[in-house]
Simulated assay, not measured.
Amino acid sequence: MARKRNRVSDLNPVAPTSFGEDVKRVRQARGLLQKHLGTATGYSEGYVSKVEKGTITPSMKFAKGCDVAFGTGDLFAEQLRRLMDVDHPDWFAPFVELEKAASEICDYSTNLIFGGVQTREYARALLRSGQPLDTPEQTAAKVDLRMERRKLHENDRPPLLWLVLDESSLRRRVGGDAVMRDQLRHLAAIADYPAVTVQVLPFASGAPPAESPFTLLKFPDDHSSVLYSEGQGIGRVIDSPEHVGTAQNLFDRLRADALSPAQSLSLIQSVMGERTR
């Protein structure tokens, strides 16, 4: 059965509710103390207290632990996902929902690895650098959400994923040599997935057809597509046929200029080897 697509115009961020108050209400109804819930979820009593007061953003591990302790299925995990979608800037939340419904994802990355295939440590390094005022708990929660996006490409019915990565995204030293080595190793591994195609746009190809990163999402129900474009801290989901068509033409040119999948894998492995020296 095709995944149901939400229209772009319907995708407004979900209004946040008090996760902590809900945890407290159910905990008390179950007759549990904060220390009991802490033990059950693998966190301290103080951590539970902060979550219930709303002073920290809980981790996905904590939310799932609450569901197990309370016997609530995936209620709290789903609530946290919705809250984290809202925790994204307003311009990114629609993309997250559309990505889940897409049957095909085509992404061009200029200097960073596509978010949907990032490793945990690579994502953490990016978030710590780009959002330095976040607490460690907030950073951890956002990393958890990014890892949820990664699962989209590891389930039984993944969307087709076509990545064109500028060579600079392989060579930018995010988080240090060890982090980059693991990230490139993961990239090489997913390149072997049947639903994934990875191509590298080498420096030798000259001026790229597109200067900025962008993502095209295609949907199975009505064979439509949308464009996601981001720059200078602002991003937009665009469903204009004219803009989508232009982006598709650019992506076709990028694929033509890029190395073949086999050549791209060789380059990824070569750069990965450089990180061990």
Results as ranks from 00 to 15, higher is better:
residue 2 A to F: 15
residue 3 R to I: 10
residue 16 P to A: 13
residue 16 P to Y: 15
residue 18 S to P: 00
residue 23 V to F: 01
residue 26 V to W: 06
residue 36 H to P: 00
residue 37 L to N: 01
residue 38 G to V: 05
residue 41 T to G: 09
residue 42 G to Q: 01
residue 42 G to V: 04
residue 48 V to S: 00
residue 50 K to T: 13
residue 51 V to D: 03
residue 58 P to E: 08
residue 58 P to M: 02
residue 60 M to H: 14
residue 61 K to L: 13
residue 63 A to E: 11
residue 63 A to Q: 11
residue 64 K to L: 14
residue 64 K to C: 13
residue 66 C to D: 03
residue 71 G to N: 02
residue 76 F to K: 01
residue 77 A to H: 05
residue 81 R to P: 11
residue 84 M to H: 14
residue 86 V to Q: 06
residue 87 D to Q: 07
residue 91 W to R: 00
residue 94 P to D: 13
residue 99 E to H: 07
residue 100 K to Y: 09
residue 100 K to Q: 14
residue 102 A to T: 05
residue 108 Y to G: 01
residue 109 S to L: 02
residue 109 S to W: 01
residue 112 L to F: 13
residue 117 V to P: 04
residue 118 Q to I: 11
residue 121 E to C: 07
residue 122 Y to M: 00
residue 128 R to A: 12
residue 130 G to V: 08
residue 135 T to E: 08
residue 135 T to D: 06
residue 139 T to C: 07
residue 140 A to R: 02
residue 140 A to S: 13
residue 141 A to M: 10
residue 141 A to R: 03
residue 143 V to F: 07
residue 144 D to I: 14
residue 145 L to F: 15
residue 146 R to I: 07
residue 148 E to H: 12
residue 149 R to M: 14
residue 152 L to N: 06
residue 154 E to T: 14
residue 165 L to P: 02
residue 167 E to V: 12
residue 167 E to P: 06
residue 167 E to R: 00
residue 169 S to A: 15
residue 170 L to P: 07
residue 171 R to F: 02
residue 175 G to I: 10
residue 177 D to A: 15
residue 181 R to L: 08
residue 182 D to F: 02
residue 184 L to Y: 02
residue 186 H to D: 05
residue 189 A to V: 12
residue 192 D to C: 09
residue 194 P to C: 09
residue 198 V to N: 03
residue 201 L to E: 08
residue 203 F to Q: 05
residue 203 F to E: 07
residue 205 S to K: 02
residue 214 F to A: 00
residue 224 S to A: 08
residue 225 S to V: 09
residue 232 Q to H: 11
residue 237 V to F: 09
residue 241 P to H: 04
residue 242 E to S: 14
residue 251 F to N: 02
residue 253 R to V: 11
residue 256 A to C: 11
residue 257 D to Q: 13
residue 263 Q to M: 13
residue 266 S to W: 11
residue 269 Q to F: 05
residue 270 S to T: 12
residue 270 S to R: 14
residue 271 V to Q: 00
residue 276 T to S: 11
residue 277 R to W: 12
